[in-house]
Simulated assay, not measured.
Amino acid sequence: MICFTVGSYAQNDFGTTKLKIKAPLNTAPVPKKVTPSATAEAPVIKAPDILKNPDAVMPLGSKYQIGETKSFSMEQTNDFINPGDRVRDKLNESISKSLIANGLKEDDSYIRKTDVDFGVIRTKSNYLIVRIRDYGAIDGDLVKASVIYDYKPTVLTNSLLLGPGFDDIRVNLNDGLNYLELEALNRGNLGGNTGNFEIYDQEGKMLISNYWDNIDKGVKSKFTFIKE
């Protein structure tokens, strides 16, 4: 009886006792991590062109790129022209007009400064006769005549003084292309170099008659002969 009573008390104490753990007092929720939307576009920055605008401030909220994209163009622009050149040219033009108006400079605006092309002449002749004289007043015009074949020039007359009457120049022709150049060696005393010419074949038939008028020193009258 005594042993049974002691054993019963021992079993009762261990069977009714429970261990409880209280929850922590700080129950604040853990913040969620926000992930940027996949469709949101991050702000981009555009770098200013420091070559054209050194004091530019980089703007916010624009796309980042260096300089500006420009399409390729063969059109000539005036980006690198010195503005002072325009002022200089206008000033020189004004001075030139003033000198001409006061008789201190010759007005040569009427002088032709580019070569004159008299076209193509076809012939079966072995040679041509070119007749030249001054056109207008006799004022000391000088010309040089050269024929060119296969890129090789041959001087026919080095310094011909044009007078009131015709001077004849014989031009021998090779098969194919032949070129004749009459170069003005000076301006006349009364203006530009002037001349009248006539070209005949070997049968005496005139092929062309014309003139050059008020051309500058160094300007050429050009002819193309094709021997067929």
Rank of each mutant, 00 (worst) to 15 (best):
V116H: 03
G163S: 10
D85W: 07
Y151Q: 07
K20V: 14
R187V: 02
A28E: 14
S96K: 09
A145M: 05
K46A: 13
S62T: 15
F80Y: 09
P54T: 04
V116T: 06
C3H: 15
F72G: 07
N92W: 09
S62L: 15
F223Q: 02
N92G: 08
D85S: 08
Y200G: 03
D139S: 02
V30P: 01
D134P: 01
I132N: 03
L180Q: 00
S159W: 04
K63I: 15
C3S: 15
K152P: 00
D134K: 06
L25Q: 13
T17N: 10
K52C: 12
L128N: 00
D175T: 02
T39W: 11
V34E: 09
E68A: 15
I95H: 06
A23N: 13
F225N: 00
L19E: 12
T123N: 01
P164M: 13
K97N: 13
F225A: 01
Y151F: 10
V44H: 15
I81C: 08
D175H: 02
L104Y: 10
A42Y: 12
G204M: 00
D89L: 11
K205H: 08
S98W: 14
D150P: 01
D107N: 08
I132W: 05
I111T: 05
N126L: 03
K124R: 04
S94E: 13
D216M: 04
V219I: 06
L91Y: 12
G7K: 09
E203R: 08
R86Y: 13
Q65C: 09
T27D: 13
I138Q: 05
E75R: 11
K20N: 14
Q76N: 10
I21N: 11
L207M: 04
L60N: 15
N214M: 08
R170K: 06
N210K: 07
D201K: 02
I208Q: 12
P36H: 06
L190F: 10
K33C: 11
T154R: 05
T123R: 02
